[in-house]
Simulated assay, not measured.
Amino acid sequence: MKEHQNRIFDKGSYDDILKKAKKRSIRRTVIISLTITFIAFLLLATFLFFAYQNMNNSMEDYSELRLTESKIQGANINHDKITISYGIESAITQEQYIKNIAGLPFTWYNEQTLYKIYDAPTTIMDSSITSINGIHYYRNGQRVINFRYPTAGAANDDRDLLKNLPANSKVEVALSFKKAMKVEELADYFPNAQWVWVADPELEDRIAEELRSVTDTEERKRMGYVIGDYAYGFKMEKDVNKSSGNFITSLKKLEKQHHQTAISILSKTTNPDDLEISGVVLTGTASELSSLNHMHLIQFVSVGVIIPY
């Protein structure tokens, strides 16, 4: 009996028991740690997968909205190219917008949009529009074209500037009509128009009402304008009816997103043939543009980009 007890409490046997228990404990700890790590990794991977899916969906929706809007907003501004770079938790798109100045591409601005897996998209332009007097605007050192609502009446414009430019200069000009015309009339009078301005009827009515209540001459001079970069319209193709139809289609897409200008224009008509055109953008040499026919239809002339040639 005593010998048996001695065997049980033998130091070597006790150490073996401790070693086995320690090994089991370590093995259990390692297995639990690996299991927890695996579960945590799986949860993180699942979270990142759905977060990236959500970000990609956000990119697709936001990009489609921006591209749809860029097709109809911004006088003579065309989307040129896009590049996308991805990070661990974000993605960045770089987009370039250009103007066509009598066949010469002119970079107007670059736009960067940051997408994050946990935040809404943020868009930043590389340059902004500036003005000293609230009438003449500039971007990247170049003039920004303006339009003037037909109901705002006549105002000092850039006709003299256009006449005094070097004859071979490549120039962009925005023409605002005294009275809105239909698409068919536009094709007859200005077949070479590059871009067509469709005035926002709600904003035009609001400005007309404000003008009636303003008596200060200087303040009235600054009213009734639309900066070209914020104007709505469409690129003029050879088939003007197709161009106006695409414009209506884009407006209807934006209307579903509760876009106020789209809602306003469509409230007046959804028929492309009934669109009221309030102005156009033309490009060419200074001598060509200063001797335009049909100047009797024009209320306001605004010179934009000028490229010495």
Rank of each mutant, 00 (worst) to 15 (best):
A199Y: 00
L175W: 08
Y189P: 00
Y189C: 03
N246F: 12
L251A: 10
E204A: 07
A193E: 12
E237T: 12
Y189I: 10
R212Y: 04
G224K: 11
L203V: 07
S250R: 09
D239Y: 10
L211V: 08
K163D: 12
Q194F: 04
D200A: 05
K179N: 15
S250F: 10
K182A: 08
A187G: 08
A180R: 10
I207A: 03
V214N: 10
A174L: 10
I207T: 11
F177W: 07
P201V: 02
V173S: 00
N164K: 13
K242D: 11
K179H: 14
L186I: 05
S244G: 06
E185L: 00
N192Y: 13
L186N: 04
F234P: 07
I227D: 06
S213R: 13
E204M: 14
T249I: 09
E202I: 03
G233A: 09
E185Y: 11
G224H: 06
G228R: 05
L165C: 02
K179I: 02
K253E: 15
V183Q: 02
F247S: 09
K179W: 00
A208S: 10
V226R: 03
E202S: 15
F177Y: 13
D239M: 06
Q194H: 13
P191H: 02
V198I: 15
P191I: 02
E209S: 15
S169Q: 01
K170G: 00
R222A: 09
V196E: 04
D188S: 11
E237Q: 12
V183S: 03
V226M: 14
Y232T: 08
K179Y: 07
N246R: 15
R222P: 04
E185Q: 08
W195V: 01
N164I: 07
E210Q: 11
T217P: 08
M223A: 13
D229G: 01
L211A: 10
V226F: 06
M236T: 04
V196L: 07
T215W: 07
L251S: 10
L186M: 14
K252H: 06
L175M: 02
R212G: 12
P166C: 08
V196R: 01
V196P: 01
A208F: 02
A187D: 11
D200P: 03
K221V: 01
L251H: 08
A180H: 01
T215I: 08
V171C: 07
N168H: 15
L175R: 06
A208N: 13
M236S: 11
A180D: 13
M223K: 14
E204K: 05
E184L: 06
V240Y: 09
R206L: 15
F247M: 03
N164L: 05
F177H: 07
T249L: 08
P166M: 08
L186K: 07
K252D: 01
M236F: 06
S176I: 02
E219V: 09
Y189R: 00
Y189N: 03
L186W: 12
T217S: 13
M181N: 05
E218I: 00
E202Y: 09
K163R: 14
V214K: 14
A180P: 09
D239S: 12
N246I: 03
F177D: 02
T217N: 01
A231F: 10
L211P: 05
W197C: 01
G245P: 04
G245T: 10
V214I: 14
I248G: 09
E209N: 13
K242Q: 15
E237H: 11
L251Y: 11
Y232F: 15
